[in-house]
Design a protein around this nucleic acid. Structure first.
Lengths: 178, 178
DNA sequence: GGGCTGACTAACACAAGCCGAAGTCAGGTA
DNA sequence: TACCTGACTTCGGCTTGTGTTAGTCAGCCC
């Protein structure tokens, strides 16, 4: 059952083969977090993990993978490594979400939501509820005027920055074509 | 600048090391789409691509990678391969989003949104606007009662399914411990 | 019925992700 | 001083993702 779920393209983007989605923000995000382990480490960070061995155990990955991923996430500024000290223990480091990392929460929830609905085995094992009012939380796509929208209700338009990029592209069609 | 962006865990989930997030829906989703090319192929599907060579050109990946990814996405039911025929051409196949694939749209938009805000180079090149009212669309995390929420406002609770899974886990603590 | 074209597949080569096992290192405790 | 532990790093090896280049295959057109 195919369904029409495509976005409409603004006329300025029309010859679709005239521009590439090269500066695409999705690709930009994936350049920072693209691996399964990175997503799962972030999940555990949202669930409150801060220490190296917590990440290793809870994500169930090897230490080398955890170390590599944590280093990357710190380098990209999603996590911050800070020294701390428990009584009677020596100084250690813990990893905490920065604002940049925390801002990925909606994306994580969106992935979780999709899994809840479409995964083969049973439904959602856990749910997020609003601490204040007890209602379940979910990710929704809405316009600023408050309408719930889906892909078919949307138009993809270049922003000011995008337009100037398009112009510079068409003036110097180097490599062009895509 | 670390910030407190962690979710609170329900008491039932309390000894965090007593349960694993093994049946986690985020992991479930990542088992289906985890690679950069899969996400970008879906992006192009939302932008209206349907043909093999469109995906290859617009995602800028090699044909083998495109073929492998498309096959997987079809196998998992996110895309559907259907025969079609242009006048004077022979029968070909095109790939179209199914409801299951279309439902990943919020996740894609969430990734795009994060990139728009945090990517190093310039801001958003393109924006999604509501065709009806012209307002920009965005992904938001809200509870069913309509409050905008962030991670710190939420509690993670097991669902009915999750609770029975937890119980079966604690009765047969096989492998346990994580 | 031979050519052309779109849609692939096949055959490499390479890098990255990941695992397990083992080693290192720092700084606190005994 | 010797030990212990959490936090890593190193090493070897497997698997997956990806790029290049080179076919292959099916049909419509001529």
């Amino acid at each position: 059952m195919p369904c029409d779920a495509t976005v409409r393209l603004d006329a300025k983007l029309d010859p679709r083969d005239g521009w590439s989605a090269e500066p695409c923000s999705i690709a930009g995000t994936l350049a920072v977090v693209s691996t399964r382990s990175a997503f799962l480490i972030l999940r555990e960070a949202f669930y409150g993990a801060t220490r190296f061995d917590e990440f290793v155990r809870r994500v169930a990955i090897g230490e080398p993978a955890a170390a590599a991923r944590l280093r990357e996430l710190v380098r990209h500024g999603l996590l911050e490594r800070e020294p701390y000290r428990d009584a009677g223990q020596r100084t250690r480091h813990r990893y905490r979400l920065t604002a940049k990392g925390a801002d990925l929460f909606p994306a994580l929830v969106a992935l979780m939501q999709w899994g809840d609905r479409w995964r083969d085995d049973a439904g959602a094992p856990v749910a997020l509820v609003h601490d204040g009012c007890g209602a379940r939380a979910a990710v929704r796509l809405r316009c600023e005027a408050g309408h719930d929208v889906g892909p078919a209700d949307l138009v993809l338009t270049p922003t000011a920055a995008g337009e100037s990029w398009l112009r510079s592209r068409s003036e110097h069609p180097s490599g062009g074509g895509r």
